[in-house]
Computed example of a mutant assay.
Amino acid sequence: MKPHKARMEEDRALRDAARALVMDDIDHLKGDVEEKGIVARIASSALLGATDIFEEGKELAEKHKPASYGIGAVIAAVVGWWALGGGRSDKSDDEDYAWDEID
């Protein structure tokens, strides 16, 4: 056999082996997607991302405790203000728009 022909046969064998591996991977992915749907995968990925963000925030708060206490106090004040009515008065809103009325 000529050297070029032998080289071509080796390359073809490598190509066929690589193609078989890719086809096996595709079949595996198809089976995996059928087993666990796309929506479940997205939800799982989002949950992992949220967990990572929460853990990083927790580590940051532990490193900077005085700042986190201040931020917590501000958040608590805003939530308390909102829960107590947010500065609204018991007066009717109609009085605020008295200038709209024509006598």
Rank of each mutant, 00 (worst) to 15 (best):
V39D: 06
I102E: 10
V39Y: 07
A50G: 04
I26N: 14
A18E: 08
I53C: 07
R7T: 01
E10K: 05
F54W: 14
L14G: 03
A6F: 04
Y69E: 13
R7P: 00
I71S: 06
E56F: 11
A6I: 08
G87C: 03
K36N: 12
E95P: 01
G87N: 05
A18K: 13
A18W: 08
G87Y: 06
E95Q: 13
S92T: 13
V39K: 12
I102L: 10
D52R: 12
A17D: 12
E62F: 00
E34C: 04
V22I: 11
H4T: 10
A18P: 03
A83H: 07
G31C: 07
E10L: 04
D16P: 01
K65W: 05
D90V: 10
A46S: 12
E55K: 07
A61I: 00
A61Y: 00
A50R: 09
K36D: 03
A6P: 01
A98M: 15
D27N: 10
E34Y: 09
A6G: 07
S45G: 07
S45K: 15
A43M: 15
A77S: 09
L48Y: 08
E34D: 15
D94M: 08
L14N: 02
E101T: 09
V78L: 11
M23N: 06
G87S: 03
D100L: 08
V33A: 15
K91E: 15
L29N: 08
D103G: 11
K58I: 03
R15G: 07
D24Q: 15
W81C: 06
A61F: 00
S68L: 00
A6V: 06
R41Y: 08
A76E: 03
S92K: 14
G87T: 04
H4C: 03
D94V: 03
A83E: 04
D93V: 04
K30L: 04
M1V: 04
A43E: 10
D52N: 10
A20G: 06
M8E: 12
A67V: 04
A73C: 07
V79Q: 11
G87W: 13
Y69M: 10
A43K: 10
K91Q: 11
H64P: 01
P66D: 01
